[in-house]
Write a protein that binds this DNA or RNA. Sequence first.
DNA 1: GTCAATTATGAAAACGTTTTCATAAATTGG
DNA 2: CCAATTTATGAAAACGTTTTCATAATTGAC
Lengths: 342, 342
Amino acid sequence: MSKTRKSQENTILDIAAALKLSPATISRALNNNPNVRPATRKKVADMAGQLGYRRNNMALGLRNNKTHTIGLIVPRISMFFHAEAITTMQNELYERGYNLIISQSNDSPEMERRLVDTMYSSRVDALIVSCTLNTEDFSHFEVFTKNGIPLIFYDRVPPAFDGALIIRGDDFQGGNLAGAHLAETGCRRIAYISGPLSTNLYRDRSQGFFKALEVAGIPVIENMVFYQALTYDNTREAMKKMFAQDVKPDGVFTANDTAAIAVHEFARENGIAVPQQLKIVGYSNDPRCAIIRPSITSVEQFPGKMGSRVISELMHILGDSTGTALKNPITIPVQLIRRMST
Amino acid sequence: MSKTRKSQENTILDIAAALKLSPATISRALNNNPNVRPATRKKVADMAGQLGYRRNNMALGLRNNKTHTIGLIVPRISMFFHAEAITTMQNELYERGYNLIISQSNDSPEMERRLVDTMYSSRVDALIVSCTLNTEDFSHFEVFTKNGIPLIFYDRVPPAFDGALIIRGDDFQGGNLAGAHLAETGCRRIAYISGPLSTNLYRDRSQGFFKALEVAGIPVIENMVFYQALTYDNTREAMKKMFAQDVKPDGVFTANDTAAIAVHEFARENGIAVPQQLKIVGYSNDPRCAIIRPSITSVEQFPGKMGSRVISELMHILGDSTGTALKNPITIPVQLIRRMST
DNA sequence: GTCAATTATGAAAACGTTTTCATAAATTGG
DNA sequence: CCAATTTATGAAAACGTTTTCATAATTGAC
């Protein structure tokens, strides 16, 4: 009982002691260094197995100044888009021998700031970020660029960031497709329910959307445009307001799918026929869009493709240390998925 | 340009040098050790800010043999249940000053094994796991118990594991509620589409379900029971088989919600009225159940509550090192959410 | 069998912290 | 103002690796 706390001896020094070799040799043997005799290599491997040796990554990281760990910060892990993107990134990183530390900011800039600090303290080899909806000051990310650690933004990105790579969906195009599609299917009074313009996402979708209306010669109706947090309740509220007016919309574009579903349910509950009286287009192609009846037209963002691109660019950066990218920002195309709601 | 690679000097030694103090004092000052003069404390804090100092967690972990990091392994991050549980766990851990490393096994036992090793190499302070569907050999988790590092299984758990804490939903009760509910609403030929019995989840749900039938005096119909991977396609296949027979089911219990949705869509496409001709009960209360029409009755597992419990138990274990728990396994109650499908 | 060349091993330092023990500085009591 | 006490600081070791440089062991050529 008076034995020291340590439950089991399993370091390189223990192997060394057991084999009467130096730690240096053990290290070399375990790392398949060519100039260690096959005989010793085998002895070491055996003893390592016997003692249940596992490399201590902290010691390794400290010594080598490299952790083989990538940090990731997203607003919410549960959003379909991110869940999908994360899965791809993690798998591709794992294949390449990297680990991924995932954190969520819960859309709080304060939390995001703390997480960035923590990530730096853990000395991740790179940081991947999709920002908070409300992040307007991006200075907390500078620790990374200042210290020469790769920083990649994706999806929700700053307008510009010196030394960082930016990868984003083609939101202008997405908004444009949505607007054009609604116009094409005959809508003339198109409502637009958007998120706050503080984020690049919604700014770009809006611009694309309005451009489409302009091209189609459809006027923007002042009180049919909303910029607000895209929650279910907010959207219901907006719908209520619009349908209390004399002139009612015959089409709605919502800048995410939760809002589209809110519109959908509002319509059903109020006996508004979709798509006959009201057409709906959402954004993100959440699986719920395909399940609800009538199913909802939405803009697919290819989260897996984006995640994959993030990793391939990152690997490129980590390989060549030849500074920043070839092309920046990078834009991933989107696609309109037509369904029964239009 | 011939300057050494290191982009910026920012260790405790640099602060020490700048202030002509010893690293020991700097360390104390930064950690609010009571016996360092307020004046020096302030000088140190200022200089730390000026140099952009950030603590190196690897050095810290190596020295203190404590990483303040908890490992988590789940089959898939994108499953609603896990996304929800993870979010709760991460938030509660973060409040308590811990970080969370999340990894997904993609339901591959091989991958799971590798992840466990990696987690150990990173010397996490504890490991939380929801196993693969196919994990039958649990020996790879023994590194943790053998080395006295807390190990907690939740949701998909081994039948028993010496030295680990097990927290699970009340799957027997869930299956039982589902069966009883279908019986109560008048079903007499109840089909059961389950996952493979290799997992505790499905074993327990099955037992609860069959018990309910037995109590209600409803016979189990041989060819209306399926044990298979609970995918959309498999379920459609099963439905097709059953409805090709003379005697057709008037109720279905599926052991997850994806399967319930498959049943639902099969019914719609084949003109089977839900709930009049066929009643459906799913499992997990995925948000899709509430959105689809008619909405689907399902068993709520309270993922947030389970995540929360995992963390509170973990904190207890990390606090007192008084070995394993008071009560083990721990069971979290479930609840049947009635909707239009029954 | 000797010398040179090669190959295998070891000693020691370094990575950035914290902490124990010792000691220097400041404070207090008389 | 001196001794005794308290408080603030410093020196050095330790955590577990890897790597450089040196040296010991082996091999090969003649």
